[in-house]
Amino acid sequence: MEQIGIVSYGADIPRYRIKVEEIASVWGKNGEDIKRGLGINEKSVPSLDQDTATISVEAARAALKRCNIDPKNIGAIYIGSESHPYAVKPTGTIVGEAIGATPNLMVADYEFACKAGTAAIQTCNGLVKAGMIEYGLAIGADTAQAAPGDALEYSAAAGGAAFIIGKKDVIATINHTYSYTTDTPDFWRREGRKYPAHGGRFTGAPAYFKHITNCSKNLMKIAGTKPEDYNYAIFHQPNGKFPVTAAKMLGFSYDQIKQGLLCPIIGNTYSGSSLLGLASVLDVAKPGDKIFLTSYGSGAGSDSFDITVTDKINDLSRKNAPSVAQLIENKEYINYGTYAKFRDILYWE
C-alpha cells in the first residue's frame, strides 16, 4: 500500500510568557485557585510584531530546514486559524511568498475554531492521495483573542505548527483519519467582533467531551485499534484538565499523553494546540511508534488520526530547527501592562 503522510514538520512559539497569577492579580482573583482549576501555569504571548502569518512562516521555514524539499514542489498551502491577520486576504498568500512556493500553488485559509489545522492536514492528505499535488503544506496557528477579564484570558495563547504532507520519504504515515461534526454553539466569535464568547460550562460535556470521545472511538473502530496500541496520544488542549479527563474516559494513560500535553506551560494555542502536541511527539518519536491524535474545534467537530512513525524519521534532520521543548524553554516573562500593550487591549493611535 502506498504511504501518504508527514514528510517534515516545524513549530513556532512566541517567547513572551505571562503567568496565570499575574493575570489573576489584576482582576482580584486567587491565582492558585485558577491554576488548579484550569491546570495552566503560564501562557505564551505574541509581541506586537507577531501574528498568525509570522508564526506560520517561521513554522513552515522550520519544516523546510529539516528536509530537502524544493518549495516549488509544494502544490497547496492550507492554513487553519481563528486569528488570521486579515478578515479578507489569505494568510496562505503571505506564507507561500515567504517560503518561495508561489505562484503555481493552491491556497486557502481555513477556520474551524481550534481544529482548522487538522482539517488542513486532511485536505493535503486527500490532494496527495488523488495525485493532484506532490507536496501539501498544512499549518495550524493562532494568536488567540480573549476579552480582558474573561476566563479565556488565562488560556488564550499563541503558537503554531506546520506539516509537509506527501508520499516520498514519509516520516509518519497517516493510516486513517475520521471526523465527527455537529452544530453545537459552545464557543464563537461573531463577524467584526474582536473577542469570542462562549457558553461557559456548556463547553464541556455536550461539546468538547462528546466530540473528542465519539470521534476517537469511531476512528479506533475504523482502524481496528485499542488505546493500548498507541505509544503517544494527543488531544486538543483548551485547558490543562480536559485532555487528561478525555484520555482517561477513552482508556489512555497519562504516560501516553504527557509528551504532547503542552497547555499547562504555554496555554491553549487554539489551531496550534493539538498540532504543537504532535510536533512535540515527533521531536522524540522512534520508528514504529504509533500516534493517536484527536483535535477539537468549537462549533463543533473533531478530527482523529491514526499515525505510524517510519524508519525515515531517522533521516530527517530534526536538529536543523528548534524542538518544541527548546521553543518552550526560550522565554521571557512580562507583566499584565506589557501584555495589554502587546495584545492591543490599550487603544491608541
Binding site: D49, T54, E58, R61, P85, E349
Partner: peptide, 10 residues
C-alpha cells in the same frame, strides 16, 4: 526572522 514591520493604521 519573519515579522510584521508596520501597518497602515487599523
Amino acid at each position: 526572522t519573519f515579522r510584521r514591520i508596520q501597518e497602515d493604521g487599523y
